[in-house]
């Protein structure tokens, strides 16, 4: 999930250039307040993890496809 300030940034393009991962958008919804993208990231485990860390570092909220696995 992208916060408002990142909506106009080409983050998925940048992700594909920075890391050896294959990206595949499965669902997306972008409003002027938030961007929600369901993105498949495929590749070696360490590259996938590095890609997720980078996304988090730039301010994207990264969840597994299940969203919240930890319940009360």
């Amino acid at each position: 999930m992208y916060p408002q300030r990142l909506i106009q940034k080409p983050l998925i393009w940048e992700l594909g250039h920075r890391f050896k991962v294959v990206t595949n958008i499965r669902q997306a919804k972008v409003t002027d307040e938030i961007g929600i993208v369901c993105l498949e990231i495929d590749g070696p485990r360490k590259d996938v993890q590095a890609a997720i860390r980078w996304l988090e570092k730039v301010g994207v909220n990264v969840e597994p496809v299940e969203i919240s696995v930890v319940e009360s």
Partner: peptide, 23 residues
Amino acid sequence: HYDEVNRLCAEIAGKFGWAFVNV
């Protein structure tokens, strides 16, 4: 942190042949 716990559990659920009740 919470997000890491979340992601690891999703991975475990995918990798082990268990019945993960909420996955």
